[in-house]
């Protein structure tokens, strides 16, 4: 065996181990989830009652699935335009020094542990949201159902907005990278036909990097879907019917915050742990789908 073959076998082994690990995790999750599905049937996925009390057990994860979808959606809706603005500013408008320091600062945002975001969200950010976003919206548009619940600052909107901030580093830095790959020839080509900077961005940079940008958004979405700690600290942690997202201002729960909040107190002889693992399984599926999508798009883009 020569060096090449050894190295090949070694990499193959390592690669197989990670695949194996994923498969193993999936098998275990499915195994643990089966009992609760046997008990609840398909209702487990499409109903909302949640009662871990022995003898009255009922588990439906619909509200948490929807909560995950809603908060992630808010995160993308708010976080992506901001990230995009940052990336455009850094690549197209700022000078080299500014760019260097701003990029470092934004990348540092990614290094902040999520529990710190949670603390800040709980003690500071939610009051800000409550006073300057939720109360005005509720007062003026309270008749519209999404603004109807009495705001508390611990709700879907807060959860989504915290996530929005948390996805900014990844989305903006990947977007920045793809924007930097736009060939000078394209930009100068647009200037040379009398275009201005706006034209260069719209017809050159964005069009050229649209797949990469889409990939960046999906990476951000992947982060938002899986994020646990910070969300669980500001989302209000409702369960059962109450956790259904009826209003942006109602307390809710995501799949991950549900698991983080309840696994500790789940009675091992009940189906409660199984129901939580099932939530994890659904979460993992969502994360895999989003991440595979993102990767497929980004890799196709890089070619």
């Amino acid at each position: 065996m020569n060096e090449d073959e050894v190295f090949y076998l070694f990499s193959l082994a390592v690669a197989s181990i990670s695949l194996l690990l994923l498969a193993l995790i999936l098998v275990v999750l499915v195994q643990y989830t089966l009992p609760v599905i046997k008990e609840m049937g398909f209702d487990y996925f499409i109903t909302s009652s949640w009662n871990p009390v022995f003898g009255k057990e009922k588990y439906g994860i619909l509200p948490y699935f929807l909560g995950t979808v809603l908060t992630s959606f808010i995160a993308v809706l708010v976080g992506v335009p901001i990230s995009f603005g940052i990336a455009l500013f850094l690549t197209e408008y700022s000078n080299k020094t500014l760019k260097k320091y701003l990029s470092i600062m934004i990348d540092l945002l990614a290094a902040i542990p999520s529990v710190i975001y949670g603390l800040w969200g709980f003690f500071v950010f939610r009051n800000f949201i409550l006073d300057y976003i939720e109360k005005p919206l509720h007062n003026y548009f309270g008749k519209i159902s999404i603004f109807s619940a009495t705001p508390t600052g611990l709700d879907f909107l807060s959860g989504g907005l915290i996530l929005a901030i948390m996805i900014i580093p990844i989305v903006s830095s990947v977007t920045r990278e793809v924007l930097e790959l736009v060939p000078t020839e394209i930009k100068e080509g647009i200037y040379a036909i009398g275009g201005n900077r706006y034209d260069v961005i719209v017809y050159g940079s964005i069009r050229y990097s649209k797949n990469g940008i889409l990939g960046a958004i999906l990476l951000g979405l992947g982060r938002a879907v899986g994020e646990t700690m910070a969300v669980s600290m500001v989302i209000g942690n409702a369960t059962g019917e109450n956790a259904l997202p009826r209003s942006l201002f109602s307390a809710g729960q995501t799949l991950s915050s549900l698991i983080a909040n309840e696994f500790n107190e789940a009675n091992p002889t009940s189906l409660h742990p199984n129901a939580l693992v099932g939530a994890g399984l659904v979460l993992l599926m969502m994360a895999i789908v989003v991440n595979l999508g993102a990767r497929a798009i980004v890799s196709k883009y890089k070619r």
Partner: peptide
């Protein structure tokens, strides 16, 4: 400058068509 560049066209060494057009 925008008017100038319109009156004075430029063709570059490496032809790069505009993306997705």
């Amino acid at each position: 400058p925008l008017v100038v560049r319109r009156k004075i066209g430029m063709v570059f060494q490496k032809p790069v068509p505009f993306p997705s057009m």
